[in-house]
């Protein structure tokens, strides 16, 4: 009898402890952080949105598609990495492909992507960097490698009737070196690059 009462008491303590701690850790804590974020760091807290002419066109951190409704890449835009998020760059369904290294589907997909780039950009397969033919972990990778950006310069310049040298200079100016000079990999943000490209058009 005494043990039953002891056990019941223990569960009573557990319930009350969970309620009090939930109030502190599950309500107060996130609200305080939200307040700090919204007041001190609103740009980051709200998703680092990129605006063109005052209109939000996406997030600097979230990769988006530059293809037509059928999924065919639009030649006048720099293309992002392949995406396994939903039907491609679906920011409501982040995901990698989860294909293993020996999966025939992955091997076939890489071959298809290589031949598509070979055709679109007129380069040999050996010149295509790995990020161009592999889906990222999130499916929302906002970046490509500088190599993949450089590879697309000719095609983009031709599609927009711009001088190759100008587009090339733009790409070089958009390369982000490693964080603090040594963390991570060099990248090019595709949305930022394409937004700058669109601005270049207007000045013409």
């Amino acid at each position: 009898m005494a043990t039953t009462r002891g056990t019941l008491r223990q569960y009573g303590v557990a319930v009350r402890a969970l309620l009090v701690l939930t109030l502190i850790l599950g309500v107060l804590y996130p609200l305080v952080i939200t307040g700090i974020g919204q007041l001190a760091l609103p740009q980051q807290a709200n998703g680092s949105l990129v605006r063109v002419d005052g209109r939000a066109v996406g997030s600097a951190l979230i990769g988006q598609s530059f293809a037509d409704a059928e999924g065919t890449p639009l030649p006048q835009w720099f293309q992002p990495r392949p995406s396994a998020a939903g039907s491609g760059h679906d920011a409501a369904a982040s995901s990698g492909s989860n294909w293993g290294p020996e999966n025939p589907d992955l091997v076939a997909a890489i071959r298809d992507r290589q031949s598509a780039i070979e055709k679109l950009d007129g380069v040999s397969v050996s010149a295509i960097p790995p990020d161009a033919v592999t889906a990222s972990g999130s499916g929302l990778d906002p970046h490509i490698s500088p190599e993949y950006a450089r590879l697309q310069v000719h095609r983009v310049a031709a599609a927009r009737s711009l001088e190759t040298a100008r587009v090339s200079a733009l790409v070089e100016s958009m390369i982000q070196e490693r964080d603090l000079g040594y963390l991570g990999e060099p990248t090019v943000n595709v949305l930022a690059l394409n937004a700058a490209l669109a601005g270049m058009d207007e000045k013409n």
Partner: peptide
Amino acid sequence: LAGGAMEGKEQR
């Protein structure tokens, strides 16, 4: 085939 184990990895 891809030239690196970048499937499922982020460029950054």
